[in-house]
Each structure stands twice: as C-alpha cells, then as structure tokens.
Computed example of a mutant assay.
Amino acid sequence: MNLVFDIVEILKVTTVLFAVIDIIGSIPVVINLKQNVGNINAFKASWVSLLIMLIFLLVGQSILEIIGITVEDFAIAGSFVLFFIALEMLLGIKIYRDDIPATASIIPLAFPLIAGTGTLTTLLSIRAEYNLLSIIIAIFFNVIIVYFVLKYITLLEKLLGVGGIAIIKKVFGIVLLALAIKLFRKYTGL
C-alpha cells in the first residue's frame, strides 16, 4: 500500500475526479430532484458519497469479482440509470418515483449521480496509476466541493432563475443522455 504525500499527484487526481463527478454539470439534475422530492440533505448525500467512494476504492474490484460482475457490467448498468435520469430532464416526465423523500439524498443523488459508475470505474483505473493517499485526499476535496454545491443549491437555483434552470436542464439532459450512450457503447462494443 503506497502512502506518499505528493501535492502534484493530489492535484491531478482531484482534477480527474472533479471532471468525472461533474457536480457543476449536475446542478440541473440536483435542482430537478429537489423539486420532485422537496428537501435534499447535503451532509447526508456527501457523507454517503464519500463512504461509497472510499469503500469502492479499497475493495471494489474484489467485491465485483466475488459476485461475478465485471467493471464493464457495472458500467452498463450505470448507463441505464443515467439514461432514465436524462429522459426525465429532457421530456419533463417522472420515471424515478419514491414516496420517501428522505432517500433522495442517497438514491439517486449519492449513488449513482455523485458516486456513480463513472466515478467508481475511474477510481479503479487511477488506483493503478496513483498512490492511495493521493486518491483518498482527492476524494475528500471533491466531497467538500459537492457538499457546498448541494448546501447552496437553493441559492444557485435563485441565481439561475426558472428560465436558466430550464435551459441548463435540457442542455445537461442531452449531455447526460450522450454520456449514458457512450458508456453503453464503450462497454458493449456497439
């Protein structure tokens, strides 16, 4: 287990994870979830995301191997979840239904939106390239950013306004749909 403090490596991994988590690009999805379920618990969503990422970083590959699931299978399943979230955003329909609003902070927010298949497969990939301490610190930095975005989502919603949110929701709906299709194609060979 390689535990070396390397600031340059930490910055590299933080940047990679920030791009993959894409909490800024997920603002319309978060606002949409908030509108559908009411309240989003920023602390709970961040904490659960942190736990999912750390556990998956440490034992993810082993867990998948034990239950006979490949990283490719995992990514394909995630592409379906992203696909349905994108359809909700684009078509203004409600596919995701949950009568218990408290769970929206965990599903679909913490998983698969924040700590989704892209993030988890990225963690498995960068584990081979970077030292464990750098990855863990980068995860913490990204979760702090996620927390503040979620905590101040109402302020962001006010700043963007109804029209801005509608435009961003459609644009990122297309982006999310394209990401879902890309993941599906990459891991199915289509």
Rank of each mutant, 00 (worst) to 15 (best):
A110K: 02
L123H: 07
G116T: 07
G116K: 08
L133T: 09
I137D: 11
A138I: 07
F141W: 13
R127Y: 10
R127V: 00
P108M: 10
S134M: 09
L113K: 09
P108A: 11
A128I: 00
L113Q: 07
I136F: 08
I137S: 09
L123Y: 07
A110M: 05
I135Y: 03
G116F: 08
A110C: 03
P108R: 09
F140C: 15
N131Y: 07
L123F: 09
P108E: 08
F141A: 10
I139T: 03
E129L: 13
F141I: 15
L109K: 05
Y130V: 08
F141T: 11
L124G: 02
F141L: 15
I114M: 04
Y130C: 04
T121E: 00
L124A: 10
F141G: 10
L124S: 05
S134V: 04
A138D: 09
F111E: 14
I137K: 11
L120Q: 03
Y130R: 07
Y130H: 14
I136Q: 00
F111P: 01
A110Y: 01
L109E: 04
A128N: 14
A128H: 11
P112K: 14
N131M: 10
P112H: 12
L124R: 01
L132R: 12
L123D: 06
I136A: 05
A128G: 10
A110S: 14
G118C: 12
S125I: 03
T122A: 14
F141M: 14
L124N: 09
Y130W: 04
I137G: 08
I139W: 01
L113G: 04
F111W: 02
A138L: 07
P108C: 11
F141C: 15
T121D: 00
N131I: 09
I139C: 02
L113P: 00
T117W: 06
L124M: 14
I136W: 00
I136H: 02
I137L: 15
E129I: 13
T122G: 11
R127M: 00
G116D: 02
A128W: 00
A110E: 04
A115I: 03
